[in-house]
Simulated assay, not measured.
Amino acid sequence: MAVYGYARVSTHEQDLALQEEALRKAGCDVIRAEKVSGTSRTGRAELDTLMQFLRAGDVLMVTRIDRLARSIGDLQDIVRELREKGASLKATEQPIDTSTAAGKAFLDMLGVFAEFETNLRRERQMEGIAKAKAAGIYQGRKPQIDAEQVRKLKSEGLGAAEIARKLGIGRASVYRLLNDPQAC
């Protein structure tokens, strides 16, 4: 039986040292760490590597569940994979041990709260963007398609497919511009 540690922070400015120290103290034989968002499993090479190494009787150790997953779906998928391998999940700062019924129940509750926190953060971000737009501070991304060029080609008698091909853009983008009175 081996104990594998997993540490994660979301940005390159954040430090992994506290998590790594806690995992060492918890008896982790190997610690894998990465700086990547926890909202998805996509692009999490260190976690993928750990999941491949885990065998029956092994333990995946994290400091807190939100370091492993920020979505209840991803968390459940990871726990399911661990269970299929005969491995378990433990956390140093939370009473989680998926080898017990109480640990599994607590894990599900924490997963729901981690996802809730992510959704709240996204809502606050969208509110901030809306407020900045209303104040004229946030303009959004600059248009990538020249609406004037689309209008000109249309006035020359070209169809949407020809315009799209000529400008190297999608036909739907041409239709969207042509049907938007503010753009044309």
Rank of each mutant, 00 (worst) to 15 (best):
A91F: 06
G27Y: 13
L18A: 11
E81M: 12
Q144D: 01
D77G: 10
V62C: 09
G73F: 15
P181T: 11
R32K: 14
E13K: 14
M51T: 06
L110K: 04
K131D: 13
D74I: 05
N179R: 07
G159E: 06
V174K: 00
Y175V: 10
K154L: 11
N119F: 03
R141T: 08
I129M: 11
L110R: 05
L16E: 06
E46Q: 14
Q182H: 14
R165F: 01
Y175M: 07
V174Y: 03
L54K: 03
S10W: 09
G136E: 02
L110T: 04
L89D: 04
L75G: 04
M61S: 15
V59D: 02
Q94S: 00
D66Q: 11
S37W: 02
T63D: 10
L60S: 00
A134L: 06
A56I: 10
A160D: 11
D77C: 08
P181K: 09
G157E: 06
L75A: 10
A26W: 09
E162Q: 15
E21S: 09
A183S: 11
H12G: 10
L54C: 14
F106K: 10
E13L: 11
A91V: 04
I72W: 10
A164E: 02
Q52K: 13
D15H: 15
E93Y: 01
K104P: 04
S40D: 15
D108E: 05
K154I: 03
P95H: 02
L167W: 04
K166N: 12
G103M: 00
D146K: 04
R124M: 02
G38A: 13
L120T: 12
A114C: 07
Q125I: 04
E123H: 07
L54G: 06
E46V: 07
A17M: 11
A91Q: 10
I78Q: 01
S88P: 06
V3D: 10
F113Q: 12
L158C: 01
R70C: 03
L178K: 00
L75W: 05
I129L: 13
D15F: 09
D180L: 02
L110P: 02
T63S: 12
L47H: 06
R32I: 07
I129F: 04
V30H: 14
D15K: 14
F106G: 03
N119T: 09
E115V: 06
V174C: 03
G43I: 13
A91P: 01
L177A: 03
A132G: 01
N179H: 05
L158G: 02
R121H: 08
K152F: 06
L23V: 05
E123G: 11
L82G: 07
V30R: 14
K142I: 03
G136S: 02
R122C: 07
R24V: 15
T42K: 15
G168E: 07
Y6K: 11
E46L: 05
D108S: 01
K131L: 12
I163E: 03
A160T: 12
L16W: 02
M109K: 06
G128M: 01
I137Y: 00
D97P: 11
K104G: 09
G140P: 06
A147L: 03
E156R: 09
R83P: 01
G38P: 08
N179G: 01
R171V: 12
E34F: 05
E127M: 06
A161D: 10
A114R: 04
M1C: 14
A134D: 08
